[in-house]
Design a protein around this nucleic acid. Structure first.
Length: 198
DNA sequence: TTATGGATCTTCT
DNA sequence: GAAGATCCATAAA
């Protein structure tokens, strides 16, 4: 099922799976760059110690508590941006982290933004895809269904049997939860520290 | 092939 | 003061 405002509202894990196969596009100065989402992680608010929203709204994560379909961009490790899709009703505080995309449009532009990388390394990590799509803090709070600058649109239908589930990557709390979802056969998923089991 | 450290912002202790 | 939803260059094995 393609992601809609409704699927994003119902449940964050279902929202995460519905985002697999959708296209994420940015358009800047007439340059369009896009990719198909192949890897995501769910961050489930008050139930989830790894979520930025676990302790309630902060200046950084307050947009997670706003409407479903908004864009949550955060800056991390002093140098990287990562992009999320806000889920659930206003006030809940959940989101889906986009961890990897398969490049579709604007290959040359993306390579210019991330020089000297192989195609399979171009967008296979949450900060890498932000660099390739030029996503930064200025996208915070954009509506991913209506914005002219950043948008999520239906692209390919992913069957349930194509979706693999695993623990999340790069976190130290709530590590056991099976909240990472990816397209099993995709060569464009991030592999750092990942154990690729069924 | 695996391990380690640097970059240096935001939040938490 | 330390750690973190990361990435990359360099070193060790």
């Amino acid at each position: 099922m393609p992601p809609t405002r409704k699927t994003l509202t119902k449940s964050t894990t279902e929202a995460a799976k519905s985002l697999l196969g959708a296209k994420l596009t940015t358009t800047l100065n007439g340059r369009r760059t896009s990719g198909m989402i192949v890897e995501v992680e769910a961050y489930c608010g008050a139930m989830d110690e790894a979520a930025h929203s676990f302790r309630g709204p902060t200046p950084r994560c307050e947009v997670m508590f706003d409407r479903p379909g908004l864009c949550y961009v955060y800056f991390t490790y002093g140098m990287h941006f990562c992009v999320n899709v806000v889920t659930r009703e206003k006030g809940i505080g959940e989101a889906v982290l986009i961890r990897a995309i398969e490049p579709l449009e604007g290959l040359e532009t993306m390579k210019r933004r991330r020089p000297s990388t192989k195609l399979t390394d171009l967008t296979n990590g949450p900060a890498k895809l932000c660099k390739a799509l030029a996503i930064d803090r200025s996208f915070l709070g954009e509506d991913l269904f209506t914005s002219e600058r950043i948008r999520i649109t239906p692209h390919r239908n992913i069957l349930p049997k194509e979706i693999a589930t695993s623990k999340r990557i790069g976190i130290t709390r709530s590590t056991h939860l099976p909240l990472r979802f990816y397209v099993r056969e995709s060569p464009f998923i991030s592999r750092s520290r990942a154990v690729l089991t069924s």
